[in-house]
Write a protein that binds this DNA or RNA. Structure first.
Lengths: 191, 191
DNA sequence: TAATCCATGTTGACAATGTAAAGATTGAGG
DNA sequence: CCTCAATCTTTACATTGTCAACATGGATTA
């Protein structure tokens, strides 16, 4: 099925090719035609799987988000307490985007997490990393026997996410000279 | 000079037209040719003032950043203490980007603050809002008579900026349902 | 089995866009 | 008045997203 008229699994191949191009030369240089060429397929072939370039990009975002979530869940899985898990999430958040700053721009650059959020029904209402944080936070409250009104909980959650996300943002900014190695677990900025 | 061969002040007119287009229909729809048309000028005229589309965009970013800085400095100017000034900066940061979420994406979306940072020599090393924060923070330490090693100071600064910037980021995310009104001064998330 | 259908790909076309090259226009300074 | 350099226009070309018409072939069904 490699050289037949029908590709076999073009949809995923297009997504993979897109990720490859973004990694190699950034999102701006990603064009539908290049992606198609990378898959040895005519320039209009993607339209059998995606209504537009944007839809392909949203699919790629979902893929990258899945990859991000895998790392977050792995970081959380082996922690004894929810408190440790939350801190591990923050470190993983920073490490992930320090390793691939382009992904930060790609995922949050246009700030519209709506589209690729809604194409994956598992996401329900919350953005997956936020949903995981919320889950861990509730576990944390239980473990500590803390009771808080809902509004205060939301404020806590936003503060945590804002801090970590803001640091990731700074870490990914080209042109910001920072003396920190965000990958270094000894850099205890978070606690 | 309105209808003569030479425009008179095309450079600034192009920048203004660019801002107008971004406000009306977003950055994606900004094209050099539209900007030129908006100024009643041929499509290649911008190349007399900017080497590329990117250079025009960087100039626009500088303009928007100047506008942002004006609000930050205004917020700081009438505060009695540095502590109040810093809090006011945070509120202004949130208010500014809550009012125009598109500016957040535009300024930080590509995460490369290097280019339009370096075209304005006044910026020196730091990104202007960060430079102002740094200045206020030093004043704060003086007023309180606090002495800290340089590294701890940097950590404090990054934490403050990360928190505020992260909240702005969340506030600007389309698709994140939030019960907060980031413009409401009663929402005391920051303190 | 053979006919049919539809998802999947191809080809060709078009408009919008960024950009370069060559030339026109004009105000400022010698 | 003349020249020159900055500014603007025209023309041209490659890239890109998208659409429409058509080709292919595996699966479904008569």
């Amino acid at each position: 099925m490699a050289d037949s008229y029908h590709h076999g699994n073009l949809r995923q191949a297009l997504i993979d090719a897109g990720i490859k191009i973004i990694n190699e030369s950034g999102e701006e240089s990603l064009s539908l035609r290049k992606v198609a060429a990378e898959c040895n397929v005519s320039h209009a072939a993607p339209y059998a799987h995606f209504k537009s370039k944007e839809e392909l990009i949203d699919a790629i975002k979902s893929n990258v988000t899945d990859q991000f979530m895998e790392e977050l869940e792995a970081a959380v899985s082996d922690k004894a307490t929810a408190e440790e898990a939350i801190i591990a999430m923050g470190r993983t958040y920073l490490t992930f985007f320090s390793r691939n700053p382009d992904y930060f721009v790609f995922l949050f650059g246009k700030q519209n997490i709506n589209a690729h959020l809604q194409m994956n029904k598992d996401y329900k209402n919350d953005y997956p990393p936020f949903a995981l944080l919320k889950k861990m936070y509730k576990k944390y409250l239980e473990e500590k026997g803390i009771e808080k009104p809902f509004e205060e909980q939301e404020i806590d959650l936003i503060k945590i996410w804002a801090m970590v996300h803001g640091m990731a943002s700074i870490a990914c900014m080209k042109g910001v000279k920072s003396s920190f190695d965000w990958n270094d677990p000894d850099e205890r900025l978070l606690v």
